[in-house]
């Protein structure tokens, strides 16, 4: 019997307890260290912001692979493909919005902004 191309087999690749324990440990580690850094103002603001974002990305990667079992399916890896597509859309939405709105703010002069806010107040 020919195999259908869409085979995402969970049971073939046995889930392991160790992957959940590692994922949980790593997540706790990243969460607590980011929290402690921010609470204690352990470094300069710019460094803190960078570190906190890096920790979030590390936790995201570890949870995606160890909890959601990304990339552990058989070929063709449709889940991974659609995950990558989602990441692309998310990056376009988030950074595109920030870029456009920043540009808008940059091009709006301060008197224009004040006039706009006053007109809103009188409504």
């Amino acid at each position: 019997m020919s195999k259908l191309p869409l085979t995402i087999n969970h049971d073939e690749n046995k889930l392991k307890l160790s992957s959940y324990i590692t994922g949980f440990g790593l997540s706790i580690l990243f969460t607590i260290s980011a929290y402690l850094l921010v609470i204690n103002h352990a470094a300069s603001r710019t460094v803190l912001i960078g570190l906190v974002i890096v920790f979030a990305i590390c936790q995201f990667i570890s949870q995606s692979f160890l909890f959601l079992h990304l990339g552990q399916e058989n070929k063709p890896r449709w889940r991974l493909t659609i995950f990558a597509f989602m990441l692309g859309v998310v990056i376009i939405i988030v950074f595109g919005s920030l870029w456009i709105m920043h540009n808008l703010k940059y091009r709006m002069t301060i008197p224009q902004e004040i006039r706009y806010m006053k007109s809103q107040d009188n409504l």
């Binding site: 997540s27 969460t31 974002i53 979030a56 936790q59 995201f60 949870q63 995606s64 909890f67 959601l68």
Partner: peptide, 10 residues
Amino acid sequence: DVIWIFIFTI
């Protein structure tokens, strides 16, 4: 839980 990582951080 994955979404919450980003809410907690951002």
